[in-house]
Design a binder for these strands. Structure first.
Length: 294
DNA sequence: GGGCAGGTTGACA
DNA sequence: TGTCAACCTGCC
């Protein structure tokens, strides 16, 4: 007896929640700072994105985080809280990081209160990070968005969702190349074929330990240690993953004075020093360095 | 036009 | 084990 068209009518009224901990800056960095590629901010400051194949809008008004969706039947406050990691475990994680004895980390956390790791789908994150080598955030968003536009489901308002790997397995490398993927096209097409021939493989990754999952996902074409860590951190909920890109490398080299350390040694240092929440620390470093807040 | 970028790979010392 | 060029494209 659900009224037809409810999902397509004009947006619902804004809903709001308190106690979320975000600032305008940390929300912007969380949604648009390189861990997700499905959010855009309009001139009014409203964030438009996709969660669980549903269009969601977010904005901060004073102490409130306000949100709305066109499809309230398929999206609830609970889904939003989960996606944005708004629960008591976030504050526990913040308390656990070694900022009391690490002034560099303390400064980064101080300048971006509320910064989080989003809980995004593994399949979609894998796709976007296969596009990421030597690409900027806008370039990754553009190419990934084009793939969704062409092959993904329409969600209304001109937005499209991630097509899914079974759909991408039907697309040729040349078609990907024509979408300006460059040499990454081969990796996307190769990954799609691998997943097609190993149907339960992707879903089973989350059952593995971090180290096992990392080894496993590095079997994919174009996935080295850095991308493996990004995928497991942003799409697999494995907070011990510590991706070292050029920004993080700069932090470790210049701020922690690991000048003569190899990449492997830096990774060992990070795992040991930041523990099983290293990925959260990494996000504070990444945004702080990128925004020149350090 | 040349150099370089949020990375991976394979060749070679 | 470590270094280096090639790979596409876009931007400076």
């Amino acid at each position: 007896m659900v009224a037809q068209g409810v999902d397509k009518t004009s947006p619902q009224a804004w809903d709001s929640l308190e106690g979320h901990g975000f600032t305008n800056l940390s929300l912007a960095e969380t949604l648009g700072g390189g861990q997700s590629f499905v959010w855009d901010q309009d001139v009014a400051g409203i964030w438009h994105g996709v969660i669980n194949q549903v269009i969601v809008r977010l904005r901060i008004d004073g102490s409130r985080l306000e949100w709305q969706t066109n499809t309230p039947l398929r999206f609830s406050k609970k889904d939003l809280l989960h996606y944005l990691w708004i629960d008591t475990t976030y504050q526990e994680a913040i308390d656990t990081l070694p900022w009391r004895s690490d002034l560099i980390l303390a400064k980064c956390m101080d300048s971006l209160p509320g910064l989080r790791i989003l809980r995004q789908p593994l399949d979609e994150i894998l796709f976007y990070f296969l596009l990421s080598p030597v690409k900027s955030i806008p370039q990754i968003k553009e190419t990934g968005g084009k793939v969704s536009q062409i092959f993904g489901p329409s969600l209304g308002c001109g937005k499209h969702g991630f097509p899914g790997w079974s759909k991408l397995a039907e697309v040729s490398e040349k078609e990907f190349r024509d979408l300006k993927m460059g040499y990454r096209a081969k990796n996307v097409a190769g990954t799609a074929q691998f997943i097609k021939s190993h149907p339960n493989w992707l879903g089973s990754l989350k059952q593995l330990s971090y180290n096992e999952a990392r080894t496993e996902i590095m079997k994919l074409p174009g996935v080295g240690g850095k991308i493996a860590d990004c995928v497991l951190l942003f799409g697999g909920g494995m907070l011990e993953a510590f991706p070292i890109d050029t920004w993080i490398d700069k932090v470790l080299t210049q701020r922690y004075h690991l000048e003569d350390w190899s990449l492997k040694q830096k990774l060992s240092f990070a795992r040991l020093h930041f523990g099983n929440l290293a990925g959260l620390a990494q996000q504070f470093f990444f945004s702080s360095e990128r925004l020149r807040l350090l």
